[in-house]
């Protein structure tokens, strides 16, 4: 798996868009991995939060947009709260989902129609609304 790096690859426009949308400076991450170490749902992720940021630093946004990780994040903000550099991965995650959802380049991870009847009648409204807003857009 060779990665060919060049200015064009690293300075990807879509990565800059992620920075704008999330309000985060991706270059600030020094890859300590702490966001990944404290994430409560990391076991289900295919790419660690810190790896997502690394891939963005390397301009590999497509790989990131295809990942499961961005849909698994529970927006608990633990990553952001402990990051030594003040990088909010949670916001980067929101931005990545927004890009996918706004362009409809993938089907939403939670579909309004799919949320089962049980869920709608059983779970608190806020849970359903929250999931739809974060994961359906």
């Amino acid at each position: 798996m060779r990665l060919r790096l060049s200015r064009e690859v690293i300075k990807d426009d879509l990565v800059r868009r992620v920075e704008d949308l999330s309000g985060q400076n991706i270059a600030m991450c020094y890859q300590c991995g702490r966001c990944s170490a404290g994430c409560p749902v990391v076991d289900e992720m295919d790419i660690l939060p810190s790896e997502v940021i690394r891939l963005l630093q390397l301009g590999q946004i497509e790989e990131v947009l295809d990942s499961k990780t961005i849909w698994i994040c529970a927006s608990c903000l633990q990553c952001a709260s402990r990051c030594p550099r003040g990088v909010e991965f949670s916001s980067i995650c929101d931005a990545l989902r927004a890009i996918v959802l706004r362009r409809r380049i993938a089907t939403p991870s939670v579909d309004a129609g799919d949320v089962s009847r049980v869920m709608v009648t059983d779970a608190p409204q806020m849970g359903v609304v929250g999931a739809l807003r974060k994961l359906n857009g």
Partner: peptide, 26 residues
């Protein structure tokens, strides 16, 4: 290689939640 996120006590042990960024595992 990785920065530990949390350290806590459980069952007489000190649990360490870290990461190995070189392999991408918690």
């Amino acid at each position: 290689r990785g920065k530990v996120s949390k350290v806590f006590e459980e069952d007489g042990k000190v649990m360490v939640w870290g990461v190995d960024t070189l392999t991408g595992r918690k």
